[in-house]
Design a protein around this nucleic acid. Structure first.
Length: 436
RNA sequence: CGGGGUGUGGCUCAGCCUGGCUAGAGCGCUUGGUUCGGGACCAAGAGGCCGGCGGUUCAAAUCCGCCCACCCCGACCA
């Protein structure tokens, strides 16, 4: 892609409203644009990274046996009254009315809908197990949207729901998803912890959260160095672990590990994933039954699993950036390679850049050509701000010796190579960052 | 929802307390020229019913009231 053909509105100064670094950088680097509180447009660059996360999620979900479908966003109120959550989740639901004054919930989650599907279409133990997933926009009337994509009112989520015949099978499905989640977050390049959590409004009996470690995280994680176990605060409190009450100083050590009584360390994290073993709570109420081998009707045993896709983007930037800009890894970068010709008026420079760009494109490299007529400083600053993993600079002086500069932000090193060797070196350096 | 704060060109802000010319600055944008490896310089421009409504006054960005939006702190969540 050419810079002048896509749309990358970068900002020199950062809007005052952005309080945390990831939010500032997403605004400044032209990834997102705010429409209103908690509502953001994804601009071309932001969308590319978002799609890359989705791709990783799809690949791992598919390879772990989940199957993709797409459920309606608009859900009739009745199904929520039937499940009993019209009342319990009322204040976080956005509701729309049609011309007949029928009320519809804008899907904050989809347990009711998927269970309804199972009730209508799953008959026999032969139809099970099943694990359905979708990647879709969710709506929640957050009490306080904040930090850009971190807590938005409209956000992209991957949600999946497993249906099994027995508790043991459901248990297996649960740990299979845990496995998938570990793979997904690893591929995204997160430093994360899996923590034991409470089940909250979801109901159910078993739950883990996946936390991306970051000082700006909204959640506290209690980590036991001895068991290498981690818990969120609610969990620890509910097990009588004497968690220090709302410690104002993060350094404050409070309480001990509920399992081995070792004092635990307190870290902060951003919740990017949450898995629940639901049991038969929804299937029983909404009639998702199956017939077993003996012809006896039983409710399906369910689990549900969420990933905040758009939040992952914010979390990644929070963890991989400095005030100068983002430090994309290869997996999530909007483009892996930036070709940066300095001084486009110089024909040799311009043509060499064009040639390199076309060759890279032919070989399916993921690259962007900064073909703007901007001065060097402007281009370099934008490149640093967005933070492409690999930057190829072509300039007049180096051109005289037939060389280009290849800079890897990942290795934080720069090497000079002959133009004709450039593609080979680019391929090699990318491999070093992350093998395909 | 409670507490605090802010609304003046695309962005950052000054002006408001102590009402009074055609409402300012920097950045960004447009045009021309000089520049050209780290956010250049000169010149000329475009762009604002000062968040909205009402009130006070000869006169309101400025004072008063109501409303709205946005941000920050608390309880919820991916």
């Amino acid at each position: 892609m050419r810079w002048t053909k896509t749309f990358i509105p970068t900002l020199k100064e950062s809007p005052l409203e952005a309080e945390i670094r990831s939010h500032r950088l997403m605004l400044r680097s032209g990834l997102i644009q705010k429409l209103s509180s908690g509502l953001y447009s994804f601009l071309p660059l932001g969308l590319r990274s978002l799609r890359k996360i989705e791709k990783i999620i799809r690949e791992e979900m598919d390879s772990h046996g989940a199957i993709e479908l797409l459920l309606p966003i608009l859900q009739p109120k009745e199904i929520w009254t039937q499940s009993g959550r019209w009342d319990s989740m009322r204040d976080l639901m956005l509701v729309a009315e049609d011309r007949m004054k029928r009320s519809f919930v804008l899907g904050p989650t989809h347990e009711e809908i998927i269970t309804d599907l199972a009730a209508k279409r799953i008959r026999s133990y032969r139809d099970l197990p099943k694990n359905f997933y979708q990647i879709q926009t969710k709506f929640r009337d957050e009490i306080r949207p904040r930090f850009g994509l971190m807590r938005a009112r409209e956000f992209l989520m991957k949600d999946s729901y497993s249906f099994d015949t027995t508790d043991e099978a459901a248990q297996k499905a649960y740990w299979n998803m845990v496995d998938a989640y570990r793979a997904i977050f690893k591929r995204c390049g997160f430093k994360f912890k899996m923590v034991e959590a409470d089940t909250g409004v979801m109901g159910g009996s078993l739950s883990h959260e996946f936390m991306v470690l970051a000082d700006s995280g909204e959640d506290e994680i209690l980590v036991c160095s001895k068991c290498d176990d981690a818990f969120n605060r609610e969990w620890a409190v509910s097990r009588g672990a004497n968690a220090s009450s709302k410690s104002s100083e993060p350094s404050q050590k409070g309480g001990v590990c509920p399992k081995c009584a070792t004092p635990y360390e307190i870290l902060r994290g951003i919740e990017v994933g949450h898995v629940f073993k639901l049991g038969t709570k929804y299937s029983a109420i909404l009639g998702a039954h199956y017939l077993n081998e003996q012809g006896v009707q039983n409710p399906c045993v369910m689990g549900c699993y969420g990933i905040g896709v758009s939040r992952c983007l914010a979390a990644f930037i929070e963890q991989n950036s400095n005030e100068q800009g983002i430090l994309w890894n290869r997996a999530l970068a909007p483009y892996e390679i930036l070709i940066l010709p300095v001084m486009m008026e110089n024909l040799t420079v311009k043509e060499s850049a064009e040639n390199l760009y076309h060759q890279l494109k032919e070989q399916n490299f993921d690259c962007l050509l900064d073909d703007r007529g901007e001065r060097a400083g402007v281009k370099f600053k934008d490149a640093d701000l967005i933070g492409f993993p690999l930057q190829v600079t072509l300039g007049q002086k180096l051109m005289d010796t037939g060389q280009v500069e290849i800079r890897s932000r990942f290795h934080s090193k720069t090497e000079l190579v002959n133009l004709q060797d450039a593609i080979g070196v680019i391929g090699r350096v990318l491999e070093e960052m992350a093998p395909l």
